[in-house]
Amino acid sequence: MSHTEPLSGESDDPLAGVELRMAADPTQLSIVRAVAADIAMRQDFDLDSIEDLKLAVDEACSTLISLAAPSTVLSARFIVVNGAVQVFTAVGSKRSAPPDRDSFGWRVLSALVDSVTTWVAPRSDAYEVHIDLVKRSQGTA
């Protein structure tokens, strides 16, 4: 499933979950993959679901890095809701368009998670591109 509007259900508690803020640089991807895997393991995801979440987070962040403005920050926020891991990623960009939803990478991303959305928010001098996803464990309906 793919949409172009923000996910509902994000916690209003600013202290909920885990948030990473890092340079929008491919060298940082191993950190965000490790956090995704750890959170999935703590939710008792099976090995395939853990790998799916890691790959999906990697693809979402890689896509955002490719759209990032120079010297910008990539953020990834992880929240667990009813056994599902929600991941909210964003980066500053000069582009006003969301990622290409017809690309091979987007198709892979969509296949790895239960839902994925992308949207763009205007900022004072640029835009913020978001990719949000949800991965449920096999036992969660």
Rank of each mutant, 00 (worst) to 15 (best):
V81R: 15
T89V: 02
S30T: 15
M41F: 13
A69F: 13
R136Q: 14
A16N: 12
D46Q: 07
D44V: 02
V57R: 02
R107Q: 14
R33E: 14
G83L: 11
R123Q: 15
M41Y: 03
P70V: 13
P6S: 10
D38Y: 00
T27H: 08
S30A: 13
G105Y: 06
S11K: 03
R101D: 10
S11F: 02
A97I: 00
A141N: 01
K135I: 11
V120W: 08
D38N: 14
S103L: 08
R101Q: 15
L55F: 01
V134W: 06
L53K: 02
T140V: 13
A37E: 10
D102G: 14
L47Y: 09
A23P: 08
D100A: 10
S49D: 15
L15R: 06
H130I: 04
R123C: 05
I50F: 09
A24Y: 09
Q138L: 09
Q86M: 15
P70M: 11
S2M: 09
D125V: 07
V116G: 02
S93W: 05
R77T: 12
I39V: 13
D38M: 06
D38H: 08
S96T: 02
V32D: 09
V35T: 12
S49K: 08
I79W: 00
A126K: 11
V108I: 15
I39Q: 03
L47P: 11
T63Y: 07
L133R: 08
L74S: 06
R42C: 00
G17D: 10
A111Q: 07
S110V: 09
G83C: 06
A126S: 14
G9N: 11
S8D: 04
R107N: 04
A16V: 06
L20S: 03
S62Y: 09
D132K: 06
L112N: 01
V120E: 04
K94A: 15
E59N: 04
L133Q: 09
A84T: 14
S124Q: 10
D125I: 11
R136V: 03
C61G: 04
F104N: 03
W119R: 06
A34L: 11
Y127H: 13
A23C: 05
H3P: 00
D102A: 03
R21M: 15
L29I: 11
I39E: 04
S93F: 10
G17K: 06
P6V: 01
K94E: 12
A111T: 06
P26L: 12
D48F: 00
K54L: 05
A24R: 07
A40R: 00
H130T: 05
D44K: 13
E5D: 05
F45T: 05
S11E: 03
E128A: 11
R33V: 09
L112T: 07
V113A: 07
D48G: 03
G83Y: 13
S66D: 13
W106K: 01
S137M: 01
I131A: 04
A23V: 10
L47S: 14
V85C: 09
V87A: 12
A36P: 03
A121D: 10
E5R: 05
D114E: 13
M41N: 06
S71Q: 15
H3N: 01
A34F: 04
L7R: 10
S30N: 09
S75C: 07
R95V: 00
I50P: 02
D25C: 10
L133E: 06
A90L: 00
D132G: 14
E19V: 03
E5F: 12
